[in-house]
């Protein structure tokens, strides 16, 4: 079977799988961003009652593998009475995992905003909340965007694992095609290329664009 014939036959399945992958990616990214900002700020808190849970969360999610977390959330949480549908368990665990990595990026970026900015904000008597929102966070954002680009590619790669709890994403579809036809090179090869195109021609350009927008917002262009 030539590759064109293969694409014509299985195009619809691949397309629906890619769509699921994109959905999982967007939802997981949303969770990762929320978790990263909350945990990153909490880790910087001077109150250890706020700091400790953030540290525990970050170390647990960075110290174990995504697959372990995924299986744990999908197979063990139901024993605690929390049963999640597989697609929710999927993007939730990917999001929580990448959120822990993102939290460190947020913390690092906030800490690397120059000292003078903090002092100047205090000197014109901005309240801590306003200082954070208007002065520190916008500058931290421009510092942390490049590493976030890498993290989002890791996140996209992470979403491939949700196929293992049978969410019908791209990975799952090509596994099915492979099991039915044994056209392994075509099936897995096509999926590899699709993941590469998503990362290289969607995520990377989008992040570059976002970096430019933020830089312009800070008047640095």
């Amino acid at each position: 079977m030539s590759i064109w014939e293969f694409l014509r036959t299985y195009g619809p399945a691949l397309a629906s799988g890619t769509l699921t992958t994109c959905t999982e990616f967007v939802l997981a990214t949303a969770i990762a961003i929320i978790v990263a900002v909350v945990m990153g700020l909490a880790k910087l808190s001077s109150n250890w009652l706020i700091r400790a849970p953030a540290i525990v969360y970050i170390e647990i999610f960075r110290g174990t593998s995504l697959l372990v977390q995924l299986y744990w959330i999908f197979f063990v949480l139901p024993l605690f009475g929390i049963t999640l549908p597989k697609s929710i368990a999927g993007f939730l665990s990917v999001g929580l995992n990448c959120g822990a990595y993102g939290a460190e990026l947020v913390r690092g970026a906030i800490q690397s905003v120059p000292r003078g900015q903090w002092e100047a904000a205090t000197a014109i008597s901005l309240s801590p909340a306003v200082r954070m929102r208007r002065i520190i966070l916008p500058q931290a954002l421009s510092i942390m965007l490049p590493p976030w680009g890498n993290l989002l590619i890791e996140l996209l790669k992470g979403t491939a694992l949700v196929a293992l709890i049978s969410v019908s994403d791209l990975m799952f579809e090509v596994k099915q095609i492979n099991a039915m036809t044994y056209l392994s090179a075509q099936a897995f090869g096509t999926a590899l290329v699709i993941y590469y195109l998503l990362a290289r021609f969607l995520i990377t350009p989008f992040m570059r664009w976002l970096e430019r927008v933020v830089a312009r917002g800070l008047g640095r262009v």
Binding site: K157, G158, A160, L161, N178, Y182, S184, A191, Y195
Partner: peptide, 23 residues
């Protein structure tokens, strides 16, 4: 290098494992 870095490991594992026998 860019290609390997931006595609999922799990997919690469399947690829290596299943494509060999095909050839």
């Amino acid at each position: 290098v860019e290609f390997i870095r931006s595609t999922p490991l799990v997919l690469q594992v399947f690829f290596v494992f299943y494509v060999g026998p095909q050839f």
